[in-house]
């Protein structure tokens, strides 16, 4: 039984076709890595999945129900799907702790005290306990991105969307963020991540999708995609990024 299913997804910005006939099937505990050059549609695909972008055609089913139906309340879907952005997008006027409790109290109706406990527990697990009362801008990029991860995890989502979350980080800070993601994957979290970290994708992914020009050109287990890609485009891309 799939948790998320995508069929014939199409999305264009003006004349530019960004997603073209994309199909995807994701079961619980899958870790799907989207790879491909910049502009291949990875981010747009993620943003379509939690309905931040309206789709032009095709459909998305979440937990057996079609969520591309205009009568559906996108909030009901987003309650269950967490998202982390490339540029962190933390709320600068709130402390780290407040960033992590906002959705819990407003959307999930958790009591303030319970929300704080949950946030502190997760912050501690990600090595951020000492920064709970700091404002995001006083933290390093790696710390901010881990806070963003905690913020997304606080509401216990059933699916996590990670949009190139290490792309804006210094190389030495990438490791600490990936370590946190690795821990979540090991704990059984279902994830879809757009990434340029090929070694990481190979290690944690259950499925790798290669996107090119808005289409999923090839998908399969990481051993096959990285070891024996069938498509010429995939081979070219991997040769370029793996050097």
């Amino acid at each position: 039984m799939s948790l998320l299913r995508v069929e014939g997804l199409r999305k264009a910005y003006g004349d530019r076709l960004v997603l073209d006939d994309v199909a995807l099937d994701i079961a619980a505990h899958d870790v799907v890595c989207l790879i491909g050059a910049s502009g291949s549609g990875k981010s747009t695909l993620l943003r379509c999945l939690n309905l931040l972008e309206p789709v032009d055609d095709g459909s998305i089913w979440w937990d057996g129900a079609e969520i591309t139906d205009p009568r559906i309340d996108p909030r009901a879907v987003r309650r269950e799907i967490g998202m982390v952005f490339q540029a962190y997008n933390l709320f600068p006027h709130l402390t780290v702790l407040e960033n992590c409790t906002l959705a819990q109290t407003l959307v999930h109706r958790v009591s303030k005290a319970a929300a704080r406990d949950r946030a502190r527990e997760l912050l501690a697990r990600f090595g951020l306990a000492a920064h709970a009362d700091a404002h995001p801008d006083s933290l390093s990029g790696g710390q901010q991105q881990r806070v963003a991860l905690v913020r997304a995890l606080c509401t216990s989502p059933r699916l996590l969307l990670l949009d190139e979350i290490t792309a804006a980080l210094d190389p030495e800070l990438v490791g600490e963020v990936l370590e946190s993601v690795r821990a979540e994957a090991a704990a059984g979290m279902t994830m879809i991540l757009a990434t340029h970290e090929m070694a990481f994708a190979r290690e944690v992914a259950t499925t790798v999708c290669f996107l090119d020009g808005g289409r999923i050109l090839e998908q399969g287990p990481p051993e096959r995609i990285f070891g024996a890609p069938e498509q010429e485009r995939t081979r070219q891309f991997l040769a370029r990024v793996l050097g």
């Binding site: 939690n50 931040l52 996108p74 909030r75 987003r78 309650r79 799907i81 967490g82 998202m83 952005f85 540029a87 997008n89 933390l90 709320f91 906002l102 959705a103 407003l106 959307v107 913020r151 997304a152 509401t155």
Partner: peptide, 13 residues
């Protein structure tokens, strides 16, 4: 606008 996007991604109205 990314501030609004991340608020919406957290399911805020």
């Amino acid at each position: 606008p990314t501030q609004l996007a991340s608020a919406q991604a957290l399911a805020l109205s």
